[in-house]
């Protein structure tokens, strides 16, 4: 990696000020995407602003009909949270199947959502549950947040501070892992609740997306059979040595079906 300056602020305000002062600085949370990129010299930030010292970014709490998770909360903490398990079990389950133990002990929900890797898990939960992104300056609806591959509605110097998940009536998640990276080849999170019936697909396309036909089908008939017949268009989906766009399109239906079964 190239040399950079290291900062470890203790408040969101300080972190935002540091980001504002240096347009080439980057915030770092768990570092599971950024550190490998730095080691490969694919990224050359002037400074890293380590968010791990900011206490206000950590923690899980229930606020009315929502679970609010601080941006620096580790996957392992979400996976084992009694609060999350009771209110949104699918979210706790998803956290248990992200990466491996080492990843879950380092990676954070804020880092994952802000990075918007198409093959990450959490974006499917945010979009599929209709969550709200909380930043250092505003609240952003999930539907407005994920703009494209590694691209979000976050502006320069804007920090994701938390995610507020409305509590669904039922929700399920299923995914197939890439055999090499173990990231998501294709996954689906389905839910029914205050945000309506939602189906979010991750892994298969360049960005997490909602599957409208499946949402319509589940709205009239919440069952695995309802989505089983719906074919995902392969056009525009990812294709690589691990699977063609057509294969991923097929997996979308399979995973949606399984997600509905998992939702109960």
């Amino acid at each position: 990696m190239y040399d950079f300056t290291y900062h470890k602020p203790t408040s969101v305000a300080d972190a935002v000020a540091l980001l504002a002062a240096d347009p080439d600085a980057k915030p770092i949370s768990g570092g599971h995407t950024l550190l490998p990129a730095l080691k490969h010299r694919l990224n050359k930030p002037s400074a890293l602003i380590d968010l791990s010292g900011i206490a206000e970014l950590k923690g899980i709490k229930r606020e009315g009909d929502a679970i609010v998770i601080g941006g620096m909360t580790r996957h392992a903490d979400v996976a084992t949270s009694a609060e999350v398990k009771a209110a949104i079990p699918v979210l706790a389950y998803m956290a248990t199947v992200i990466g491996d133990t080492q990843v879950r002990n380092r990676g954070t929900i804020g880092g994952s959502v802000a990075n918007n890797d198409p093959a990450a898990d959490y974006p499917a939960a945010v979009l599929g549950l209709g969550a709200t992104i909380i930043t250092s300056k505003r609240r952003i609806a999930a539907d407005e947040f994920f703009l494209g591959m590694f691209t979000t509605a976050l502006e320069e110097g804007e920090l994701l501070t938390g995610v507020s998940f409305p509590i669904p009536e039922k929700a399920g998640y299923a995914k197939m892992r890439n055999p090499a990276s173990r990231y998501v080849m294709a996954g689906a999170l389905v839910s029914k609740g205050p945000m309506g019936v939602r189906v979010a697909i991750n892994g298969a396309g360049p960005c997490v997306f909602r599957q409208a036909a499946m949402e319509a089908a589940l709205s009239s008939n919440w069952s695995a059979d309802a989505v089983a017949a719906i074919k995902q268009d392969a056009d525009g989906l990812n294709a690589d040595i691990h699977g063609s766009a057509e294969y991923r399109a097929h997996l979308v239906t399979v995973m949606a079906k399984r997600a509905v079964i998992n939702a109960g």
Partner: peptide, 11 residues
């Protein structure tokens, strides 16, 4: 080498 890292070489 397309399978040039653990991201693409399936161990």
């Amino acid at each position: 080498l397309v399978s040039g890292s653990m991201m693409d070489y399936a161990m």
